[in-house]
Each structure stands twice: as C-alpha cells, then as structure tokens.
Design a protein around this nucleic acid. Structure first.
Lengths: 213, 213
DNA sequence: TAGATTGTTAATCGATTAACAATC
DNA sequence: TAGATTGTTAATCGATTAACAATC
C-alpha cells in the first residue's frame, strides 16, 4: 500500500460520492469498472479518480480496472462506515425531526442515540423511536454515553451556548445546520457545516447572473 | 468599476458568507470595516477579501476601509436578493415541510409560490400558508406561473421523472436535496446540491481518521 | 503475447497569498 | 502631510490533468 500520509480536503470530500456511485453500480450488477468508464459516469477525469484512489492504496489491477465490490468495501473502510459513531441531535423542531426521519444513520456510519430540545414538553417523548430529552440533561447524558457527533438543528442564537456545553462534555464533531460558524469559536473541533441559506443564495446568484448553463 | 468578466465559482460561493457576516456587523452597529479586521473575523486572508470584492468593483476607500452598509447592499445587489425569484417546492414530506418552515425565503432572494406532492390527500392543503397541490397539476402550474427555481425534497428514485417534467416546463434552477445528480443528466441547468448524506460521511471520515483538530 | 488499464511522475492550470504603488 | 488601507500586479502554492512506464 503506497498510501499517502497527507490527504487533501478536496480528495476527502469526493470519497462519499465515489461510495455512492459504487453502490449504484452494485445495484446494476456491474462487477468491474475502469477509471475511464467511471469518469464518464461521474463527470470527472480518469486521472483524478486514479489519483484520488491512490492516496489510499492501489485498489485496481492493471489491464483490468477496479472490482466494484472490493473498491466500495475499501472506501467504506476508509470512511469508517462500519464503526457506527454514536451521535446526538440537538433541536427537535421541524428540521431536527426531518433529519431524524430522513437519515438512515447506520448507512452513514452513525447511530443516533438521543435527541435533545429546550421545550420541556418534549422531554420523555420519542421521534422515530429515539428518546427526546430536555437540554438540562445534556451534560449528564454526554458524560455517561460519550456521543462523538452532535447534529445541530438549532437557531443561530442558541448555538454558542449549546456548543460550549457540548465541547465541555467532550463532543468533538459537529454536523452543523445552524448559521453559527463553530470552527471560528472553537479549536480542535471537526465541523461539517450545512449552510442551506448559503446554498440557496448561491443558486439565486446563478439564476440572476448566469444566462443559462 | 473595474469588475471582471469571468468570476470563479470559489469566489461566488464566498459571497453568501460575506453577506452573512456583514449582516452581523450591521446588527452590532459597526459602520466601517477594513479587510484586515474582516479577515480576522472570518478566518480568511485580507488579500482574499480584497481580491474577491474587486471582482465586482472597488467598494472600499483607501486609508479607510469598507462601509458596512454600502458593502452589504452592493453584495445583496450582486446576488440579486431583492428580485425574489419565484420558487416551488417538490415533496411535502418531513424534509419538505421543514424547509418550508425553516427558510425565510424573501431573505434569500426567493418567493415560495407553491408546493407539490404525489400524495392526493395533501392536494388543497396548506403548509406555512403555501398551497399544496398534486403533482398532476405541476406542468399546468409551471406554464402559468413560470417558477424559476425548484426545491427538490423527493427521494432519489422519483427525481429523474420529476426533473424531466420540470425541465420541460421551463424550470432551469434546482436546489436539490435528493441524492440524484441532476447536472449529470441535464444540460444548461443550474443546480445547487445539498447532499446531507455526503456531509455526514465526510464528518464520519474525519471523526474516524483525524486525531483531533 | 498483445491489449488494456493501472499507478505514478511531470506539466499545467487556477486559486490563494504576498507585495506594493496608488490614494484617501 | 503622515498613516492607513485599498486595488492590483506578481509570486506561490496546491489541485487537476496529461503522459507514460509498469504490469496484469
């Protein structure tokens, strides 16, 4: 395995997409794929695919290509999907509920172990089979259950205090749907920001500025 | 205005973030900001900020910096937030509902003019004051109301057919929450993909592979 | 073996950063 | 005017693409 030591973010961000396309190929019953064929499907260059994969090791075979099953398993192992990192979700509003129902957590390497909300009325209820607890119980829960990931479905205003609590309780990774920039305020944290507002504004920009294509 | 003719995607994707930070500054009552000060806040380089802004024109004043109100207004105008592009949302499931409630559409340069769902039971109902119609009425609605943006909150499997219909009906821009890669199948289309699954997998990768920070 | 396709090195391209003259 | 900070050009850095030798 020639695997590199430093891997750029650009490469990392493409892994889930490879993983997804390889699942499609599996569903189709395709057992073998060359970088050329995959590049046509994904609208990437064959070079890039080979470069990306070779960051982690030589998964292909000269003159043949890549075995779909093997490659998908390898990428899954690289991401660590089998590990099921324990995750909690904060904010059981519309978005929080949607995420809870929407995500097939195990498929994405996680297990949702709890939901928290400030509304005392929700304490003790369930969403999609997951218990909802009051925010007052957050610290105790974290100490006991050591969740690794927090999914933030809370408004920007409440984010700083919630993050403070979570980081103090040992949570290091965030899937952040709030408009609060976590990484600006905490060090040594892993954050993935889903700024849907930014996405919509980017789209609006393109609609208003780009004449077709 | 020295404004450039070609503007890279990297620059465009930073505009919403500038717009957001400038709103924060306005709220704080800050009237003036230098690229240096803004760079510290946003964790960018001052160079990059000046380069980015100068793609669109010289909004600053030497020796002074940038007027917060003016700059925010200018960026708003560049994005075209005032225009209120008509948008429709497809799929009134958990996610669709959450998006409907969650987004302050006018704030993001849109107006949500209709919601569509395959479930006939929802036809004629309302979500957050917006009428829900059956999918059978989609083409007629588009012909009449000419929505510019479609927000896709539907499963991957139904996406190809829905996109086909929408594109035929003249919709050119998509905010895509489905896992279907629109741009791979349609040309001359503007798409903004919010692949939350990819985001979660990227986070999981980092949790499993990156030792803190 | 001949053909195909990888793994990997080298060349190109684009984006970010640095530097500095212009100027408020 | 002197000081600050922009706008803009030039230098650097990193990511993508091309090329090709290795090899199945």
């Amino acid at each position: 395995m020639p695997a590199k030591n430093y891997i750029s973010n650009s490469v990392i961000r493409r892994l889930p997409r490879y993983y997804r396309f390889l699942a499609d190929l599996q569903k189709e019953g395709t057992t073998k794929i060359s970088s050329g064929e995959l590049s046509r499907r994904m609208k990437l260059t064959a070079s890039q695919i080979r470069q990306d994969l070779n960051c982690y090791g030589g998964f292909g075979q000269q003159g043949y290509g890549y075995n779909v099953d093997v490659l998908r398993r390898e990428i899954g192992a690289i991401i660590g999907v089998e590990r099921r990192a324990p995750a909690i979700l904060i904010g059981a509003g519309n978005l929080g509920k949607a995420i809870t129902y929407f995500f097939d957590f195990p498929k994405y390497g996680c297990e949702l172990v709890g939901i928290f909300d400030i509304n005392p009325q929700l304490d003790g209820t369930e969403i999609a089979g997951i218990s909802v607890r009051n925010m007052t119980k957050l610290t105790a829960f974290c100490t006991k259950n050591k969740p690794e990931i927090a999914i933030l479905c809370i408004p920007k205003a409440s984010a700083p205090a919630v993050c403070e609590t979570l980081v103090e309780s040992g949570v290091r990774a965030f899937l952040n749907f709030s408009h609060y920039d976590i990484n600006l305020h905490f060090d040594g944290i892993i954050a993935e920001n889903v700024h849907m507002g930014d996405s919509l504004l980017t789209l609006v920009y393109n609609v208003n500025n780009r004449e077709k294509k």
